[in-house]
Structures are given as structure tokens and as C-alpha cells.
């Protein structure tokens, strides 16, 4: 996932870098037969309601749209009305406000997910405390539903493997099942939500049968049990 710089006030919204400029050929992750998909996302750090403009044409090229509200009211409107995919929970400071269950459940019903990133917690101890406390508070409020965990890494060494992250989420106060969903199912839900937001209605996916079968035959080495269970009935 590409991390674009946050928009400051008055600065224009940057355009995502086209994939062909980044890399000639996308790498294939082990255990899969297809190359990875790279998407672009925009994170808007909001301290004022003018920072987010609804249906702005500059948001169009991004696959995912995320907001990080800084105040109580913005959080409420982000959960209830804004047309975004992800709401970020701050990891580098104390949670600037407290919220109740109502707005969070409003967001859950609309299919918006909440995001916690873990790379800051690997970097130093104070931010680790903030990350953990904010994540625990959040998972108390939402009972562990529809949380996604992302890396937000700036160096390659801050990335962690999927199993490690799944297990790390138990420090965030998620149960085993919710932790697994936070890395697998909820992320996919966020992507689909982003796609349907872009096309403004719904989407119909078509895929070739042959590719599907090839994927099934791929070695089970890196596929989690959950993943395997999901693809088998197809």
C-alpha cells in the first residue's frame, strides 16, 4: 500500500504516482501465483471541517480515502456522513477526544473501518504506549469489530509478517478471531468499499475460471488456514 503525504491546509491534493514509474515488474509474493496489487490512498488529517470537501474531483484518482479526525465533532461527522473508507486512530499522541458507542456503530453499519498502525510502536516507547492505549480504548468501544491493522512503515525493517501482526493484535485488546479478521477480512472489505465508492453504485466482479484454479494449486506454504477455508467452497 502506498502512503501519500497528508494534506496540509491550502496545499493541493497530490496525485498518486503511476505504478509504471515505481517499478517495472511487480514482485510475486510467495505462495501466490499473481503479482501484488499496489493501491493508492489519501489520508486527510482533519482539525477543521473545511479540510474535507465532499465529492472533490481531486480525490478521484485514489483507491482508498482515509480521514484522521482530531476533534469530537469531526469524528462524529466522519463516522456518520463522510464518504470515506477508513478512519485512522492516532498513534503518536493521546486520543484527543473520547467517544461513545453510537458513532462507532454508525460507522460499522456504513461499512467504514477503523485503522490502527503499528510501525510507530516499533519505533519508540512513548508512541508504543499511545498506540496500545488508543487501540485498547477503541477495541473496547467497538468490541473488536471492523478494525484493520496497517503498518505505516517508512523503512523496510518496520514491516512485520502477517502471523506476527495477527498475534500482535492481542495486545490491542482484540480476540484471536477478531485479530485474524483485522488482517484479512476487514482489509478486503475496506478495498471493496473503496471500489464501490469510486464507481458510485455497486460492482460486479468477473474473473476467469482458469486463474482461479491455478491459485488453488499454489503451494499451501504461505496460506493461512482461514484463507484456505474461504476459497475452498468456491
Amino acid at each position: 500500500m502506498c502512503f501519500e503525504p497528508d494534506t496540509k491546509k491550502k496545499t493541493p491534493v497530490p496525485c498518486p504516482v503511476p505504478l509504471t514509474e515505481l517499478m517495472e515488474e511487480l514482485p510475486v509474493v510467495q505462495g501466490r501465483s499473481q503479482p501484488i496489487r499496489v493501491l493508492s490512498r489519501l489520508t486527510i488529517v482533519m482539525s477543521d471541517s473545511s479540510h474535507y470537501r465532499a465529492s472533490c474531483p481531486e480525490y478521484r484518482p485514489f483507491d482508498l480515502l482515509a480521514v484522521q479526525p482530531q476533534t469530537d465533532k469531526l469524528f462524529l461527522s466522519a463516522c456518520m456522513t463522510y464518504d470515506v473508507d477508513i478512519i485512522c486512530i492516532s498513534v503518536s499522541e493521546r486520543l484527543p477526544f473520547f467517544y461513545k458507542r453510537a458513532p462507532v456503530y454508525g460507522a460499522l453499519e456504513r461499512g467504514v473501518v477503523f485503522e490502527v498502525s503499528y510501525a510507530a510502536s516499533i519505533r519508540d516507547a512513548t508512541r508504543r504506549r499511545y498506540t496500545l492505549s488508543n487501540a485498547m480504548f477503541h477495541s473496547d468501544v467497538c468490541k473488536g469489530k471492523s478494525v484493520i491493522v496497517s503498518s505505516a512503515a517508512v523503512k523496510a525493517l518496520e514491516l512485520r509478517g502477517p502471523h506476527d501482526v495477527m498475534n500482535l493484535t492481542q495486545l490491542f485488546g482484540l480476540s484471536d478471531r477478531d485479530g485474524r479478521d483485522a488482517v484479512t477480512t476487514n482489509c478486503r472489505a475496506a478495498l471493496l468499499h473503496g471500489e464501490s465508492r469510486k464507481t458510485a453504485g455497486g460492482i460486479i466482479r468477473t474473473f476467469r475460471r482458469a486463474e482461479e484454479q491455478k491459485e488453488e494449486q499454489s503451494p499451501v506454504a504461505k496460506r493461512s488456514r482461514h484463507d484456505a477455508a474461504e476459497t475452498k467452497p468456491v
Binding site: 503499528y118 510502536s121 525493517l157 509478517g161 501482526v165 498475534n167
Partner: peptide, 30 residues
């Protein structure tokens, strides 16, 4: 093991024979 495992992602370097190896552990199987 889950509790102890949850500490492993926070490893950023291993010190061996006086040298610091910046690395991370990636768990692939349990």
C-alpha cells in the same frame, strides 16, 4: 506462547559478537 510471541515483533536489532545486526524476526510457522 501467545504472550511471549506478541513481544517478538518489537525486536529491531540483535547484538552478536559486539556487532549490532538490524533485523526483524518473521514468524512463518507455529
Amino acid at each position: 506462547y501467545k504472550l511471549l510471541w506478541s513481544a517478538l515483533p518489537f525486536i529491531t536489532s540483535i547484538e552478536a559478537r559486539g556487532k549490532k545486526i538490524t533485523c526483524f524476526l518473521n514468524c512463518i510457522y507455529v
